[in-house]
Design a binder for these strands. Structure first.
Lengths: 105, 105
DNA sequence: GACTTAATTAAGCAGCATCTTAAACTATCA
DNA sequence: TGATAGTTTAAGATGCTGCTTAATTAAGTC
């Protein structure tokens, strides 16, 4: 339990997840579908985010809903918003995906 | 060149270094002496901090002086100050050092 | 109870991070 | 120029991260 928020934020995929659940909660599956990786990969990243206190989980039937914990994120909000408004992070994710494809071919 | 600031901040040692050079610049050796690791380890961490734009380097004779780039750090300052004022980070470093000793014995 | 849907946990692997020691570099000064 | 002090770079060991597939758990439905 209880991970380091800055370590959680070090990963661009987790930052992108955080952006997805910033304004409204979403189910794990809903989140997973927006990425090009396996469900477990997303589930693991959600666990890290939860352990660091950056997202909250709510169980609804067989689903689990996630949302950003805006309170915990307030002192980091300035930075994240800048980053997102410049779309730096999505570019980084794309670049890394490209990089992977390239190294495999 | 040009690393990710949040990745740079994911490491507690680098955060501690950042705290050291927050108010005044310090030489690499000066910084290294305050830690219980080798000089190259600190040098490498300084390089990461510099690559991510969080610290500035100035050469003076054979020494290199480092200081935090307060401008680049402004949107993260709220978070860092809280962390440092609670001394969370130093406790984390100590805990990790203990952990290491334990696993070696 | 058996089946389906939603999601997590487990196990294993590849790649990255961080440390170490040894070698190299750079500026200063006798 | 040769020696020294301050620091970085190189090479290598070791552990951590983040992914994958397979197995498992949990809730709802027939």
């Amino acid at each position: 339990m209880s991970g380091d928020p800055l370590s959680a934020l070090a990963n661009p995929r987790r930052r992108e997840i955080l952006r997805l659940v910033w304004v409204e909660e979403r189910s794990a599956g809903d989140i997973a579908r927006t990425f090009d990786v396996s469900w477990p990969a997303i589930s693991q990243n959600l666990r890290v985010l939860k352990a660091s206190g950056l997202v909250r989980e709510r169980r609804v039937g067989t689903s689990r809903m996630y949302r950003a914990d805006r309170g915990a994120l307030r002192p980091l909000e300035a930075y994240l918003r800048r980053m997102w408004s410049r779309d730096i992070d999505r570019l980084r994710l794309l670049a890394e995906a490209e990089e992977k494809k390239r190294s495999k071919s």
